[in-house]
Design a protein around this nucleic acid. Structure first.
Length: 346
DNA sequence: TATCCGTGGCT
DNA sequence: TAGCCAAGGAT
């Protein structure tokens, strides 16, 4: 048997039962693919179920408020996925009368949908022959063919895409695409792949040449930048102040507290530059409490966050463009994991 | 083209 | 344990 036949045979015997595999509804396929971008099945599964429950159809999603979509997305990360998801639902409602486009080029043109996701939707929903090339596919092909071209180089992307187009089973593209990704996720894993018991262990060139552990090759390493966040958690008896993050920065569209970012850690409250909160200095009855330092790791940033809790009589006197809310109602707003951790003292 | 954009699990 | 990496896409 050839590569794709063996793969599909393996898939039939080993595949997981996942909810988006029991449908060809392009809305559900699209939703699952957006959720699963750079995200493990275990992490995304419950979000998928929540979304389907809250938004059974693309029209339900289109008619929702973005804030509700972000709230349901809270904790999943890469929040532009949620914003683009909502935007695209509205776009399809308006331009396609709520019916998902069936043409590859039109699918690819949707916001938040790149080559991988367009191929996934086209094949899984419409059984069109477009090969998916995701992290799993790069790994499986790099190892089976012992290819050391960096997968994050222009040449590498071109090579692997061409190879994927040769290998896809044109009679059965949907199942082939599922199979190669599932094989990468369960069998040909990044660390400790199960080569001892593998359908390809007599044909895999990287195994033969002892290159399994170094493939696939990536050339770019992301460098992590340190940032120091000083959150001002104002509160009176009932209220606190929160802010919507509208800047081009992390967590766009989510809410957090008034923030003073510094280039190094601040240890004393007096050292903070409280320009827009000058009135604080005139208040005699304020109490200030400093939190521990929260370390929050993102893919490309290391956030050092200190929360300064400032208790005053009437919160309105320090309010500028912040949103004044009942303390307990902060749980209704979409917030980053860091803020959630602080609220629940994790 | 290189960089930005989250979170959590794994070794 | 510090780094790697996961069903990527936008700019």
């Amino acid at each position: 048997m050839d590569f794709s036949s063996l793969l599909i045979k393996w898939y039939k015997e080993n595949k997981r039962d996942l909810p988006w595999r029991n449908t060809t509804d392009p809305y559900k396929i699209w939703l699952s693919e957006i959720i699963l971008q750079q995200t493990r099945v275990d992490q995304g599964l419950n979000y998928y179920l929540k979304f389907i429950e809250n938004f059974p159809t693309i029209i339900d999603l289109a008619n929702s408020k973005e804030e509700k979509v972000l709230k349901l997305w809270q904790g999943l990360g890469y929040y532009s996925r949620a914003r683009n998801l909502h935007f695209t639902a509205k776009y399809i409602q308006k331009n396609y009368n709520g019916t998902f486009p069936v043409n590859y080029k039109e699918i690819l043109a949707l916001k938040g949908v790149g080559e991988y996701t367009a191929a996934a939707i086209s094949s899984f929903s419409f059984n069109m022959s477009y090969p998916v090339v995701d992290g799993n596919v790069y790994r499986v092909l790099a190892r089976f063919f012992d290819i050391n071209t960096p997968i994050d180089s222009t040449l590498g992307k071109k090579e692997f895409k061409a190879l994927a187009e040769e290998l896809i089973d044109k009679k059965n593209p949907a199942e082939y695409n599922q199979a190669i990704m599932e094989f990468g996720a369960l069998q040909c894993k990044p660390k400790q792949p199960n080569c001892e018991n593998c359908i390809f262990n007599s044909k895999c060139l990287a195994l033969k040449n002892d290159n399994i552990s170094i493939l696939p090759i990536k050339e770019k390493k992301t460098k992590v930048k340190n940032r120091f966040f000083n959150y001002l958690v104002f509160s009176d008896k009932k209220h606190t102040l929160i802010k919507n993050r509208t800047e081009k920065d992390i967590w766009q569209g989510l809410f957090d507290f008034p923030l003073i970012e510094t280039v190094k850690p601040i240890h004393q409250f007096e050292k903070l530059n409280l320009e827009q909160y000058k009135i604080l200095n005139t208040l005699t009855d304020k109490s200030i409490q400093k939190s521990i330092e929260y370390i929050h790791i993102l893919s490309h940033q290391k956030i050092h966050a200190t929360f300064w809790s400032i208790q005053i009589d009437d919160i309105s006197c320090v309010q500028n463009d912040e949103l004044k809310i009942i303390k307990e109602e902060i749980v209704k707003y979409p917030v980053p994991k860091l803020i959630e951790n602080f609220i629940f003292k994790k």
